[in-house]
Computed example of a mutant assay.
Amino acid sequence: MTIQALILLSRLKKVQMNEAGTVYFDRDHLTFSTVHEENAPSREISVKNWRYSLDSVLSYLKKRDLVMMDDLLGEYVRVTHDGWRIWQTAISRLAWFLFSSILVPVAVSAVTALIALWIAEWS
């Protein structure tokens, strides 16, 4: 993941405030704001300094299933569960990679060696 995508994801999480929330993207003013009920807490951030790369970063996050865009215009953005738990997901993927790439081949070779020794002992 790029640094820009990670920064934008963390800012979106701050604006969304909880996993069940939604964020409104105002393309005219380049701001993200919390979709909220009246008198409920809300936040707003400006991303004017990202104006040239914002769409590509959002599409990258969407492609990785870290955000969802609820409408065709991309005005409503929601950080998914994987986006909220990005580090847990990364650790889980690393653990699965280590298990499937290292531990399974080691176990298979150990079993194969034991079978070969058992066959050599009986012959």
Rank of each mutant, 00 (worst) to 15 (best):
E121R: 02
R85D: 11
L117D: 06
L61H: 00
A40H: 10
Y52P: 00
L6Q: 13
F99G: 10
V47S: 03
S56G: 07
F99P: 06
K48C: 13
M17N: 01
S42K: 11
S109Q: 13
M68G: 01
Q16Y: 04
L9E: 00
V108D: 11
F32S: 03
T89F: 03
T89G: 06
V77I: 05
H81A: 13
S123G: 08
Q16G: 04
K48M: 12
T22D: 15
T112D: 14
R85A: 12
L54C: 04
M17W: 03
G74N: 05
E44R: 15
T80S: 00
N49H: 14
L114I: 15
L114H: 10
W118G: 13
V108T: 15
R64L: 13
L98Q: 10
N18V: 02
V15L: 04
L58V: 03
L6S: 11
L12Y: 02
P41M: 07
V47E: 05
R51M: 09
S46M: 07
Q88F: 06
Q4C: 04
S59G: 05
S101Q: 15
L9Q: 00
D28Y: 13
V23L: 04
S59A: 13
W122I: 05
L9K: 01
K14V: 10
K14F: 14
S56H: 11
A110N: 10
Q88L: 09
D71F: 04
W118P: 05
T89Y: 05
G74W: 05
T31D: 05
S33Y: 04
A116F: 10
S92D: 13
A90E: 09
W122T: 06
A116K: 09
T31Q: 10
V111R: 13
R78P: 00
R43M: 03
Y52R: 07
R11Y: 13
